[in-house]
Design a protein around this nucleic acid. Sequence first.
DNA 1: CGTTGAAATCAACGCTAGATGAATTCCCGC
DNA 2: GCGGGAATTCATCTAGCGTTGATTTCAACG
Lengths: 201, 201
Amino acid sequence: MVRRSGRRPGNQDTRQSILEAARSTFAEKGYDNASIRAIAASAEVDPALVHHYFGTKEKLFLATMNAPINPGELIPQALDGPREQAGERLVRMALTVWDSPAGTAALAVFRSALSNEWTARLLREFVVTQILRRAIGELVTDPAEAPMRSALVATQIAGILVPRYVLRIEPLASADPEILVAALGPNVQRFLADPLPGVFG
Amino acid sequence: MVRRSGRRPGNQDTRQSILEAARSTFAEKGYDNASIRAIAASAEVDPALVHHYFGTKEKLFLATMNAPINPGELIPQALDGPREQAGERLVRMALTVWDSPAGTAALAVFRSALSNEWTARLLREFVVTQILRRAIGELVTDPAEAPMRSALVATQIAGILVPRYVLRIEPLASADPEILVAALGPNVQRFLADPLPGVFG
DNA sequence: CGTTGAAATCAACGCTAGATGAATTCCCGC
DNA sequence: GCGGGAATTCATCTAGCGTTGATTTCAACG
């Protein structure tokens, strides 16, 4: 029997609209403060339907993050190019991601990680294994210095993200991305490759 | 009859111990996730007593932050000294504050601000009026450039605080303060006074 | 048709939260 | 030594949460 009887899984845009409502609600309020009931209301749907589709709140969160976050394609772009401008490329990549729709999902993870334990673990593992080791680590020549230099680079990225997307402090929140690239790129570059007296040696 | 309710003999520094319990609990869990019941338990006190002393949860939070946060004395220290090392002094000051007991309160505000709306407003106003305008603004020569330069400096400070105190990512979390001063001081200095091509002009 | 089974809703459970007001106990000035 | 008021606790109230199971609706099939 190829086709079974019964109602076709019709109108699948309900599932999709729940996902979208979840993504924006999680991004806005973080994991804990985003209630399933609020998500359901935002999708104009019964709360129980959310469970029907996604099971638990954790699974809904993971489903929300699963689609948009896929660093596999972006990272090579950041690595490709002259070494002296790697700093600028990293900043530009971060801003591009966070200004895109996928950035909403990233913001959700980030905001949640700051107040919830298991989402924090999620973010930490993702950042360490995917971003720091895989991307930034490649750009640092001396392996012994890689952990500290990667962490310092992360410092710069977090430094933009928090004021610009989480706290929305002006003039950073509405600054043109290229201005931030010009401002922060050299600092990132310094952490990647310049000698750091007082830190190493 | 077993003595269950009623006034406790001696030791009426209860109010103070509630404040301390509140401060550390807020710092650890943020505003929303810190329950009055947990604070009361940590102070070995009935939850209703917390309300008796402080009214609402918001008022308790404000009372908790009121005492320790008083930047009036610190800021002159950061301003005093050679202009070329102002960046390092700012970083050192930030780390000193956050490593002190008062830093617990600051951490509470900061962590709360990342997931809660009204505490975010609280932090924004405090940062903008007290820190940015009053302190960092003094160090920037061109007034037209002050807002952006101050914000960029704030970027650097936030960049250390989040990984070091909120997320506790190594090796930043346990790095010696002077190492971070050496690493980040020059970046801050650049934002304070160096020409920023691509940002201004 | 009638059957089927997914979509969607309803009503409720158990839990935790902040808040309230009455009741109880004790300190302190008189 | 006594009475008022502050300190402390108790028992609740209300509201919202995630979750569950029963129930209803309805398009697609034989």
